[in-house]
Nucleic acid binder design. Structure first.
Lengths: 105, 105
DNA sequence: CGAACAGTTCGTATATTTGCGAACTGATAA
DNA sequence: TTATCAGTTCGCAAATATACGAACTGTTCG
C-alpha cells in the first residue's frame, strides 16, 4: 500500500477545526453568527477572559478566514465571513455525511 | 452585559474540533469512515508518519470518542464510533446551519 | 494640547501538541 | 524456548497554544 500525502482538503478541514478547537472561539463564533454585527467590546463584556486573550482568539479566527474585522473608529466591528463560513460548513458536511463503506480488507 | 460561562456544547464542539485539528487525524477518520474495518497496520502503511506517531493520533481520536479500537490478536482493529460520530455531525451541523441573525446592538 | 476610550501588540510563563526512535508488551510461530 | 510480528508506551526535543498584565496606537472629546 502506498503512502499518501495529506490532501488540501485534509489540511483545510484541519485548519477550520483548529479554529473551532477552543470553547472561547466557539462561543465567539456563535455570538457573531447570531448578530448582524458585533464590536470587540461586546465580546469582551461577555467572555470570561482578559481583553488581550479575546484579541488573540479573534486573531486566530481572522487568520482562519471564518471572521473578518472592520475598523469603525474608535471601535472594531467583527462579523462572520459568510463565504468561508459556507466553505467550512460544506467541508464538515461532506466529511461527516458522505462516508461510503468499503469491505474490510 | 453579563459574563457567560462556556456551555457544555461549546466544550463538546471544541473537543471534537480538536480531534479534527490535524491533517493526519482527518485522513485517519476519512480512511476509517470508508471501511467497515481497518487495522493499525493499514493506517501505518498509508500515512507518512512513524508508527509511534500514528498510535498517538489514534489515542487522541479514541479519547475524543470518535473512534474505537478492538484487540484482535495480534492486530488491533479500529473503527468509527458511530454513536459519537453522529453526535459530532449534529453538533457541527447545528452550529454551522442554525444561525439566527439579531439586530446590531 | 492632554485625557479618555477601544483595541492591539509585546513580553513572558506555562501547558499542550507533535514527532521520532528505542524499548516494551503480548500473542503467535518455529 | 526463542524469535517474530503488531502495536503501544516512554523519553525527549521542538513547536505551538493559552493566558495575562503592561505598554502601546489611534481616535475622539474637552
Amino acid at each position: 500500500m502506498e503512502k499518501i500525502d495529506y490532501t488540501s482538503r485534509h489540511h483545510q478541514i484541519a485548519l477550520y477545526a483548529k479554529a473551532l478547537a477552543h470553547p472561547a472561539r466557539v462561543a465567539i463564533l456563535e455570538f457573531l453568527a447570531a448578530r448582524e454585527c458585533c464590536f470587540f467590546g461586546n465580546l469582551h463584556d461577555v467572555l470570561p477572559i482578559a481583553k488581550a486573550t479575546v484579541s488573540q482568539h479573534l486573531s486566530v479566527l481572522k487568520e482562519s478566514g471564518l471572521i473578518q474585522g472592520e475598523i469603525k473608529p474608535p471601535q472594531v466591528r467583527y462579523c462572520i465571513n459568510k463565504e468561508n463560513w459556507d466553505v467550512a460548513r460544506d467541508l464538515f458536511g461532506v466529511f461527516f455525511n458522505d462516508l461510503q463503506k468499503i469491505e474490510c480488507s
